[in-house]
């Protein structure tokens, strides 16, 4: 593991896997059909004091 190798990996693979990750997460976060699930999750915490379910 030399300095050159580390820096080459960071400048090539490091760049692209981060780009791929950010695209993937953006697509997931804004996928239209997931809207209902997210709304349900956001509202689920407003009334949660009635105890666990099992």
């Amino acid at each position: 593991m030399t300095h050159e190798l580390t820096s080459a990996i960071a400048k090539s693979f490091g760049l692209f896997y981060l780009l791929a990750l950010s695209i993937g997460i953006t697509v997931y976060a804004f996928w239209p059909s997931l809207g209902k699930r997210f709304d349900k999750a956001a509202n689920s915490i407003l009334d949660d004091e009635d105890g666990p379910c099992r």
């Binding site: 997460i25 804004f30 809207g35 997210f38 709304d39 956001a42 915490i45 407003l46």
Partner: peptide, 21 residues
């Protein structure tokens, strides 16, 4: 904060995006 304000978080999608960011 949402619990105390009695309002759901403004954008749940944005919260996911900022988490991974």
């Amino acid at each position: 904060l949402p619990k105390r304000a009695e309002r759901p978080i403004y954008s749940y999608r944005l919260s996911i995006l900022s988490f991974w960011g």
